[in-house]
Amino acid sequence: MSWLDGLSWFLLLLGLVFFIAGSLGLLRFPDQFSRLHAVTKADTLGLGLVVLGLSIQSSWRETLLMLLIWLLVMCSGAVSCQLLARFSRDAADAEPLISHQEPGQTANSTSPASAPVTKRAE
């Protein structure tokens, strides 16, 4: 086995580790917003490492094809994550209107609508 094969296998295994981390995060993270972090970031890098590992053993055409697929998955992953987060926020905001509330009961303080405005980095 040449050192290039070794590097390829190392990248494939590292990619697999990030895929497992993404799946574990999906199970272990406490709320839907945190779970979105797990599936977008870990899986995107995991796929990238798998593509990199496979491209070492492939022709230039297959490499280009895999890179295109990775780019598309990365774009669609980030956009769908944003859409899911927006939907969850809208659902969380609408919840107090749907659920039964006792007189004088306040809405959930952890709602995204009550997010503080932070000062940006100078």
Partner: peptide, 29 residues
């Protein structure tokens, strides 16, 4: 991206506490 994925993997594997999660806004320029 590498740091983000590494951070998520660390939290997933070592079941780190999520005491400081929350929402914030960033003024886009």
């Amino acid at each position: 991206l590498w740091r983000g994925a590494f951070d998520v993997a660390r939290r997933a594997f070592f079941a780190r506490q999520f005491a400081h999660t929350g929402f914030a806004t960033y003024a886009c320029r």
